[in-house]
């Protein structure tokens, strides 16, 4: 299948790959997976006391579209508030990366991952 240029760019030069200390109370971790294709995605955010996402990291084992979707999300959410980040829609990801219909679920996975990371952070903070 032909990948769009943006997908290839994120796949070949993924942004923000890595791991944060998930014990850190300012770090929220979202872990999601897609059983149908066996993809696994971890997305982490570091949140300032003002509730702004200062940094984001991801690690994805999956296809190019899944890697690109999570890479893009880490770029987008930096500087966002938690509310803005949790309002992120998979359709914007799919549109930006020009994902074909069969790869839409990769963008859904990335949306689920950022939502899970925000939820994990909020749970830690007891808010």
């Amino acid at each position: 299948m032909a990948y769009s240029e943006k997908v290839i760019d994120h796949y070949e030069n993924p942004r923000n790959v890595g791991k944060m200390n998930d014990k850190d109370e300012n770090v929220g971790t979202g872990m999601v997976g897609a059983p149908a294709c066996g993809d696994v995605m971890r997305l982490q955010i570091k949140v300032s006391d003002e509730g702004i996402i200062e940094d984001a990291k991801f690690k994805t084992y999956g296809c190019g579209s899944a890697i690109a979707s999570s890479s893009l999300v880490t770029e987008w959410v930096k500087g966002m508030s938690l509310e803005e980040a949790s309002e992120l829609k998979n359709t914007s990801i799919a549109e930006e990366l020009a994902l074909p219909p069969v790869k839409i679920h990769c963008s859904v996975l990335a949306e689920d991952a950022i939502k899970a990371a925000v939820a994990d952070y909020k749970e830690k903070k007891g808010k």
Partner: peptide, 23 residues
């Protein structure tokens, strides 16, 4: 149908293990 279903929540502990095995 578990082959073409799209988004399904999976146990976090299991996902953690999958991540570690892949790492």
């Amino acid at each position: 149908d578990t082959i073409s279903e799209s988004s399904t929540p999976v146990e976090p502990m299991f996902l953690m293990q999958q991540m570690e095995l892949r790492e």
